[in-house]
Structure formats: structure tokens, C-alpha cells
Computed example of a mutant assay.
Amino acid sequence: MRDLLVLGTASAVPTRHRNHNGYLLRWDGHGLLFDPGDGTQRQLTLAGAAAHDLTWLCITHFHGDHCLGVPGVVQRIARDGVRHPVQAAFPASGARYWERLRHAAVFHDTDVIREQPVSGETMRLDTGDAPFTLTARRLNHPVQAYGYRLEEPDGRTMLPDELAARGVHGPLVGELQRRGQVTAPGGRTVTLEECSRPRPGQKAAFIMDTGLCDAVHALADGADLLIIESTFLDEDLAHAEANGHLTAGQAGRVAAAAGVRRLVLTHFSGRYDPGAEPRFAEQAAAAYSGDIVVARDLARVPVPPRRTP
């Protein structure tokens, strides 16, 4: 399963309709929780997710709407007895804030949280044997902030008819995948290219508080799913630029230039009431003709089906 559970969509201040930030990207048994704001523990429960679903905790920066849910999430991991490692990525420059959040109250602690502080302009995180890579890039915000990009390696899709035509079956198929060629029962050498086609790896990007910068475009490039802040409408561009944020139109232009397949707009300023939602989509659509989702709390957004070569 590959999908996004939207746990909250507000910016600095939660509203009656929008919780603080929180985004759970579920990817083949892994759960990457991005920017848990205040109330995330409850939102996980309402969305039908559990602490056991979490394998990553990724913080873009230490403004409260992106991290005040960390204490509850960590304590829930401990309380529920999660035994697998949970990697924690966060800006190294905010380590003191991480420590305060990580140990904000008295509880029976857990040793499964594995810290991976992020520094520099670009950093590739240690994902072990996970079926993806995870890269952080420095964004443009008044405090140090990072966006994250998940990438599945390219692979190949086996073609059953081509395998059968060449007499390759059973254990030979696995050997062909591992070695790139096998000797078929008739003595013929069969190559992987003859019996498969390229399978492009899928990509997802998560971009929160930032002004436009090169890192935004690099993170979004070719993403199947782009989750990106659109804090303001275009008429409030000056306010967005002054505070290191994006507008809906800017998010749409980023998605169009990057060839994104599904665009998820989120992190909405409390100055707009729910009736303004269509305007975010309209302004993004002025530049981007793909699928646009205006995020709502507790919504589920599937990762688009795999691209065909």
C-alpha cells in the first residue's frame, strides 16, 4: 500500500476545521510521519493508524505547528510497545528543541528512536534495507528547514509470455533477475532485457515552509506525489514572500515545471475560511493541468499508479 493519510492541514494556528500539520506517508509497510503538530496522536487514532505503523519521524523545522506533536507521538510509541526502530530525522541546528520535545514529560521511555540529525545543503539519510532512499534538502525559511524526497530505485517488470516462449520458469526466473542472464533448458542464453521491461521507480516529495528556491524544484522533480505548502492565495504574495512561504499559484507552477503527477496542497493560513478551498485549486490549476488535491484533515490520498514506460 502506498498512500498519504492527511492528519492536519493548518499552518501556525489550528482552526475548527483544520488540525495542526501531520502527514503519514505509507509505503510498502513503512510509515513516514512528517511534521507532527499538536494533536497528531489523536489524529492518528481518528485516521485508523497506530504507533506500530510508524518507521520514520521526519521534522522539517522547529516551528511549533510542525513539531509540537512529537512528545505525544514518542510517548505513544513507548506506551504501545513498538519494538521496531523508528528513525527520527530533524535539522541538526535544532537539536536542543528536539531534546526538549523528545523528553517533554515523565514516561517509561523507549530505546527504539534512532536519531538522524540533518545538516548541510543536501543529505542522504540511512534507510537501511528499506525499498527507497530518503534525501533532505535545505529550504528557504527564516529558521533552518529541510524538505524530504523519497525515491524507489528503478527496476524491471518481468514479462510472463516472453519467459514462457524462451523456456524460462521456476528457479530460473529468480536467477535471471539476479544475474541478468541464464541458460535455458535448450541451451540458449536468455537475457533479462529479452524478458522484461523497465519499471521506473516511484517518487514522493514533502515540501513545507519555504520561499521559492532551487531545492524546491530539485525535491519536486518528477514526483508521483508532491505534498507542498500553499499557505497563501496569490493575492497575498507579498505576505508569503515576507514570511518564507508559498502561494497556491507558486505551488502549481512548481508542479508543472517538475512534471508532478499528483499535487497535494496543504498548510493553509487561518485567514481563509473553508469556503476558500476552491480558490487554492483554481490558482494552482492556472499553471498545472495535473491532478490537484486540496488536502483536508483525515483524507486519504493514494500514490498514483506506477508509470508505464
Rank of each mutant, 00 (worst) to 15 (best):
N140V: 02
G222K: 06
V13L: 13
A50N: 12
Y288T: 10
I228C: 07
A88L: 14
G186E: 13
T135S: 07
L212H: 05
L54V: 06
A92V: 00
R2L: 08
L4M: 09
V190A: 02
F206Y: 15
P185K: 13
A164V: 11
A51L: 04
Q202D: 00
R18W: 09
R178M: 11
H66M: 12
L225T: 02
R296H: 15
A215C: 12
C58G: 08
T9Q: 09
D111M: 06
P14G: 02
Y288A: 07
V260P: 01
V264F: 03
N19L: 14
G187Q: 08
A276H: 10
Q116E: 10
P71I: 01
G259S: 11
A257M: 13
H20W: 14
A295F: 02
V254S: 01
F132Q: 11
E229N: 13
F280R: 08
E175R: 13
G69S: 06
G37A: 03
S93Y: 08
E235T: 10
R42W: 09
G187F: 05
T157C: 10
A12L: 14
R178P: 00
N140S: 12
E152L: 10
G259P: 09
L219D: 03
D126N: 10
R271F: 10
D291L: 03
Q202V: 04
H61I: 00
L263C: 06
G22T: 10
T247H: 04
F268E: 02
A218T: 15
A255S: 13
G31Y: 02
H17S: 01
L219P: 00
V260A: 07
A49M: 06
D161A: 14
E193F: 10
W56V: 00
H103V: 00
G72H: 02
R137G: 04
H217E: 15
D214K: 12
H30W: 13
L33H: 00
V118N: 01
E194Q: 15
G39M: 04
D291C: 04
H169F: 12
A295H: 04
H63L: 10
L225C: 08
T110H: 13
L219N: 02
H108V: 12
D126C: 07
G48C: 13
L192D: 03
P142R: 15
P85Y: 05
R114V: 15
A88N: 01
N243V: 09
L192I: 05
D3C: 01
G187N: 08
Q116R: 09
L54W: 03
R307K: 11
E282P: 03
L246P: 00
L237G: 05
G244Q: 10
D297C: 08
D53C: 01
T40W: 04
V182E: 02
P36L: 05
S11L: 12
D3H: 11
A215L: 08
A92R: 05
S11G: 13
D80P: 00
Q177W: 14
D273S: 14
Q181S: 12
A240F: 06
H52E: 11
P171L: 01
D221E: 14
E152D: 14
V143T: 14
A285G: 12
A215T: 07
V216C: 13
G252A: 13
D209Y: 10
V264E: 00
I228Q: 05
H66S: 11
A257W: 11
P305V: 06
P85I: 03
I228E: 02
P274A: 09
